[in-house]
């Protein structure tokens, strides 16, 4: 029997070229994006503290989504681009 597949194809999946990664974090600006899931804010603050202890001279910048259920706004992403060289994000419960 010949049948039709119900799977919709993705027309053209985007493929982004990532910017080159830094070889070390010293002197860089570390960004943190809180997805508002519990207890991500405390986890990211803890990573911030530990990184500051281990890598003196780094700067950090924190941003938050308005809700876990929606994407970060263009404003939040713009602030991260302006204030961070690398970003730590969190997903899930």
């Amino acid at each position: 029997m010949k049948i039709c597949s119900p799977e919709g194809q993705a027309v053209s999946e985007k493929l982004l070229q990532a910017v080159s990664r830094p070889e070390r974090l010293q002197g860089l600006r570390i960004g943190f994006l809180d997805n508002t899931k519990a207890p991500v804010d405390k986890m990211l603050a803890h990573i911030d503290k530990r990184l500051q202890e281990r890598l003196p001279g780094i700067r950090t910048f924190h941003a938050s989504k308005s809700s876990m259920a929606v994407p970060a706004t263009a404003q939040v992403m713009g602030e991260l681009r302006a204030n961070a060289d690398v970003l730590i994000n969190a997903l899930g419960d």
């Binding site: 029997m1 049948i3 039709c4 194809q9 493929l15 982004l16 070889e23 570390i30």
Partner: peptide, 26 residues
């Protein structure tokens, strides 16, 4: 993970542009 280079994008992994659903012989 923040300081390790990422592999180059795998262009072959990009799905083709198909607007007709696949026909399958079972």
């Amino acid at each position: 993970k923040l300081t390790t280079a990422l592999p180059a994008p795998d262009i072959a992994a990009v799905a083709s542009n198909r607007l007709r659903c696949e026909r399958i012989e079972l």
